[in-house]
Every structure is written in structure tokens, then in C-alpha cells.
Design a protein around this nucleic acid. Structure first.
Lengths: 201, 201
DNA sequence: CGACACATGTAACACGTTACATGATTTG
DNA sequence: CAAATCATGTAACGTGTTACATGTGTCG
């Protein structure tokens, strides 16, 4: 959903072509998530299929009407784009947080050294954080947008570390608590027993 | 990647079947991300295809050898699982942050009211945060693992709000700065001009 | 010339997600 | 009985990702 709308946004002003879109997308978001060029073309194809963009007439109109396939946004595309900007990103729309799942399940199943997992993760996140602050320092003033992207990650990493610390504290507090750290809220329906009951009655 | 390994983790102790896996997965992670039952079966099929799980003999061994298809983890699955727990979740392995991309591109293209986007998002996130704290309050002590999951989201939401505030401050600081908020770091190679140059020489 | 970046595209895959079909079991 | 839940599965789709093929333009 991100790339799709990202490309739409970049096409808002004027028709553009594949490599140009990748370049401007990375210029805006930083090289943090490098965008494979193949992805651009597949996404453009799908956008065209859905009627959100169309091959541009600019291709022949301008002097640079060679080789490059220009795409332009359609009215439907503009509607879709406006809708994207108007609609906030909800928690539910986000992908599952792999780290949270990992820790939750490390707690749920026995035989996993949860503390070790937490500590390894903490190490890794701290290192990312260092790298990110380094990136931030080395960025010039002009690049506002991807400075914000970096800071988004910094804030996220800091929150993650705080959370990991919180987890460790939680772990210590629950040393030696009853075995099932995770309650069996899902009671397996015992169809055998049920059938026996039925027979008995 | 999360669901796949999550199911593997739940199969570590003993063979289980579809609905049971969904139940225990949701018990561990909270009903935050409801897990479609269809997903469980498709994932199990793919896990079996990859040799990480296999149909369990327990199916016929226990008295409940009816209807339900039990799966058990294989050695390869155990290796994969151990690897999952040992390897930290890196920034790069995470999916692109849609919100960061949205704001970056709202800055990059003209004609988008960035402040409005930020404020709408802030509203939405605040509301999520309220809902999350409510959920946290209403959770009993026993459910450690998914209490941690909720707190993970709380920490994330708080960080997001801080970041949004930071963004607004940044916006104010850059009022009236030179139009291209995002620098054209991608200079379109002008093949026409290049050809002209060549011709001239 | 040869290496490299530019440029477009296709094919195939992984993962998540939903909708649907089917049947057994439970319960009001 | 009828409705709801449990249970298994399949088919199809959307998005992201990679690898590959193909050709042009540029530059040492």
C-alpha cells in the first residue's frame, strides 16, 4: 500500500517514468529502504490495471519523447491519493509486529530463554540507534523529508529499547510464578469426553 | 514471517491442530491482531511443503484420533525456530513504515496540507492510545505475554505522537523556506542534451 | 571495445488475506 | 429441527520482492 500511493503522490504534478520515480522516491524517504527498480514497474503496471495511472501523451509531445515510458495520474488516481492523505494510518492497518509476537511466544512456550532473546534484541536495537543518529548527523539541512524519516526510526528504536527494558523488569517480577506463563484461554474441546457424556446420559 | 514462526513455536511441545493453534496464538498475542483461521491452514500447508512440520502420528495414537489433523514440528523446524529466537529483528527486516512514507511524500509534493495530515494522524493515534490503555487496565495479572504486546503498542503509539509533534515543530521552523522542500537529488539524465553535446563536438 | 549505468519489462515466488465449500458437533 | 460453532481445506487475490532478459547510452 505504501509504494503504490507513494508513486501516485510523485505523479501528482507531472508525468514521470520508472527510474525517475525510483530516484525521487528514494530522495524523499532516504536510502533507508532501497526501492528495487523492478518493483516500480510492477507497481506501475498494477496501477494502470486499476485505472489510477495511464501512459502519458507527454511521451511524444516533449523533445524527450524517446525510449522512456511516461505515466500520468488519472482522476481516479487523484481521488485515491487524496483519500490516502486524508485517512490516518491506524494500528489495525499496520502489519503485525514481529518482535512483539516473538517475545509473546517466547513467553508462551517453555524452554526458551526469554531474557537472552530480550538482551540480544536490545544489543541489536542499540546498534541500529547508533547508526541512525550517525545518519542524522551527516544529513544536510535541505533534506527535510528524509530527515523526518530517520527521526521516525530513531523514535521507534528508542521506544523499542524502553519496551525491552520494561519487559526485563516484568520478567524479573515474575520469577518462579506458576508454570503456564500464558494461560490456556483456549480450552481444547474434548470431543471424546463430550461423546462419553452424551452416551452416559 | 511472524505467523509462520509463531505456529512453529506453538508446536514445539506437542502436536496440535488448526483451531487449537489459532486459539493459543491469540491467547499469547491478545486479540489485537485477530488471526484468520484460513491463514492457519495455508501457513501449515506451506510449512509442511518446506519440511518444517509434518502430519502427526498422534492423530491415531490418542483416543481423540478423529477428524482433527494434528501437525508436529520436524527437526528442520526446530532448527528454524531456534534460529528465529536467536536472530534479532533488524530495522531492515521490518516492512516500510507507511506513516513515515506518507509524511515524507506529503512534504515532497506540493499542494498537500502537511499540517492537516499530521494533525489528523495525531488525533487518530491519541485515540488508539486511549483504547490501548483501557485494554491494559482491563487485563488480569495472569496474561503476561499479551500484556506485553499491548504495552509494545502503547510505547509505539507514544513514540509516534512525540514524532508527530516533532514534525509539526519542524514544519513551523521551515515556513517559507525555498519551494522544493525535497531536493531533486535525482537529476533526470537529459538524453537530448547529451546527444546535442555529442553532435557539437 | 568493454564495463557500467540507464531504462523497460516479465516471470516467478513469498506471505498475508479473504471468500467460499464442506461437513461434523453442539446447543437452544 | 435450526442455528451456531468447530474443523479442514481450497481458490484467488494483493502486495512486495527477486532474478532475469533485453536493449540503449556513456565513458575510460
Amino acid at each position: 500500500m505504501s509504494i503504490k500511493h507513494g508513486l501516485l503522490a510523485l505523479l501528482q504534478d507531472e508525468p514521470k517514468y520508472g527510474y525517475q520515480l525510483r530516484g525521487e522516491f528514494e530522495a524523499a524517504t532516504g536510502a533507508t529502504w532501497p526501492l528495487n527498480i523492478g518493483q516500480v514497474y510492477t507497481t506501475l503496471t498494477r496501477l494502470e490495471r486499476d485505472g489510477l495511472v495511464q501512459p502519458s501523451a507527454t511521451r511524444t509531445a516533449t523533445p524527450e519523447g524517446d525510449g522512456r515510458s511516461m505515466y500520468e495520474i488519472t482522476d481516479a488516481g487523484r481521488t485515491e491519493l487524496a483519500n490516502w492523505f486524508e485517512t490516518p494510518v491506524t494500528r489495525e492497518s499496520r502489519p503485525r509486529d514481529e518482535l512483539a509476537i516473538k517475545l509473546a511466544l517466547a513467553l508462551a512456550v517453555p524452554g526458551v530463554d526469554v531474557s537472552a532473546v530480550v538482551q540480544r534484541q536490545r544489543m541489536s536495537t542499540m546498534q541500529s540507534l547508533q547508526e541512525l543518529t550517525r545518519l542524522k548527523r551527516n544529513s544536510t539541512d535541505g533534506e527535510i523529508s528524509w530527515q523526518l524519516v530517520i527521526e521516525s526510526m530513531i523514535f521507534g528504536a528508542e521506544a523499542e529499547i524502553r519496551w525491552l527494558d520494561h519487559c526485563e523488569a516484568m520478567l524479573l517480577r515474575h520469577r518462579g510464578k506458576p508454570r503456564p506463563a500464558v494461560p490456556r484461554t483456549y480450552d481444547v474441546p474434548d470431543q471424546e469426553a463430550a461423546r462419553s457424556e452424551e452416551a452416559r446420559s
